[in-house]
Design a protein around this nucleic acid. Sequence first.
RNA 1: GCGGGUGUAGCUCAGUGGUAGAGCGUCACGUUGCCAACGUGAAUGUCGGGCGUUCGAAUCGCCUCACCCGCUCCA
Length: 511
Amino acid sequence: MAQATEKTMDAIVSLCRRRGFIFQSSEIYGGINGFWDYGPMGAALKRNLKNAWWQDIVERELPGPDGKPVSVVGLESTIIMNPKVWEASGHIGGFNDPMVDCKDSKSRYRADHVLCLGLKGQTEGGQLYAFLEGDDDGLAKARKKLEKYTKRSLEDAELDTCAFMDLSAEERAITVGPDTKEVGTLTEPRMFNLMFETHCGAIRNDDAKAYLRPETAQGIFVNFHNVVDSSRVRVPFGIAQMGKSFRNEVTPRNFTFRSREFEQMELEFFIHPDEAQTWYDFWRNERYRWWKAIGLAGDNLILRDHDTAELAHYAKNGAGVCDVEYKFPFTDPGFGELEGVAHRSDYDLRQHAEHCGKGDKWRYLDQLTNERYFPHVIEPSAGADRGTLALICEAFTPDDSRPSKVYMNFEPRVAPIKAGIFPLVKKDGMPEIADKLYRELRRKHVVEFDEKQSIGKRYARMDEVGTPYCMTIDGDTASDQAVTIRERNTQSQERVALDKVADFLDEKIGS
RNA sequence: GCGGGUGUAGCUCAGUGGUAGAGCGUCACGUUGCCAACGUGAAUGUCGGGCGUUCGAAUCGCCUCACCCGCUCCA
């Protein structure tokens, strides 16, 4: 058995497998890179997370910046859409990063991160030496190579740096790659399409080509007017959607953190352009608060505002972009993104208005003010799989003093099992009383009945899947009509009357 | 995609050319009196996969797949 006394990714992955949280997809055939399955516990945990998001975003009342309830409706759009959606959104074309390969060293670089060092004023002949942006060692190496080539030491003023992206074919031919000694081994910058392709219908030609969506957001934007016309919403309001998205990542990595198939929980919140800052600030703070409330309450969660330099094309000059980030064991001491909150301006609605040919007719009409405009969008976009993984990592609590050596400290709201119902021993009528209690509690909560093996072993199992409460029917229950309730984190026990157990659970778990 | 590492039972691992093992876990029966108790019995292996070398491969070689670390990238 695993002696998981340290909070390492290996220990967490091991527990996920052992207790049925997460398995590798298609494992019996050797697995498939970037795809993961959720077992019984993982499916329950992820569903609880998604339900909490849907309830808190769409269903329950949330006071907005002005104290009035925030208005949000739900949507479920398809994974495959008309390919023109992706032309309009910029995913075909601008979405991908240009990459450059080195034929000699077989390395691949982000083309826009490659810089070239050369002699100032030199227009022909000579050689250029490539290095990676921010790589001081690489720069020093490039300079050394250039000095060796010119056979003399060079002053700073003689040097010139330019971007590889800006080079002509002739200039690329005299460029030496960062990890080679030959010239001309770098390819021209090439796009790698991260969208999965498929074909609709029986004939597989270019006309039938379609894409699996790389984000759920566009399904919301193209349905903007359908929702406005059918559901009596008024700006400001939001459309929420959760669902699978697909990206053919070059390097899936870090357990479920970067997968090729993943689930998003996205809200597109439509606002008047003048109110962008107010609503951006609201959602920025609200989303951070929400992740804390769902169980990421410790120091591992941060809210990070983006620098202007890293802003996406649609977010320049906006109210801002920030990430809710979690310190995973594999990112430590850094952080990994759980959710991005971005002011996307009116970029997407305008793009679709233009591409579908409706143009200004696609503007929103405010019937109170008679103003027509393209609403701006504040987009809180969260990863459900990343969120689930963060909940698992945060909950994983080593404790050598207990038999399981570890327990999962889930918030009761997201815990896969809310309570275990155990007869202390399998005789003297205890199983019958336990079974009756189990059936009663099961009507409202996910609870588990277990009469096998010793009581300690059953507690240990519940610790490892993060069940907050265990209710034990013992020899006194028949006479005093009360059970022992064990609390997971403290392992303390209290005596609760049988007819008060349901109330106890309702209060602790919420309904 | 590049470089490095790893891959044997559910888990942790032993096994370096000669009949696939241990501990824990799991299941059944008995027992039980609050934290992985005990007894008896049982099930579970493409030794990641393929090809090769060999009389014989978990073990040696080549190819491949998956995972981990670094680069890269990202919801």
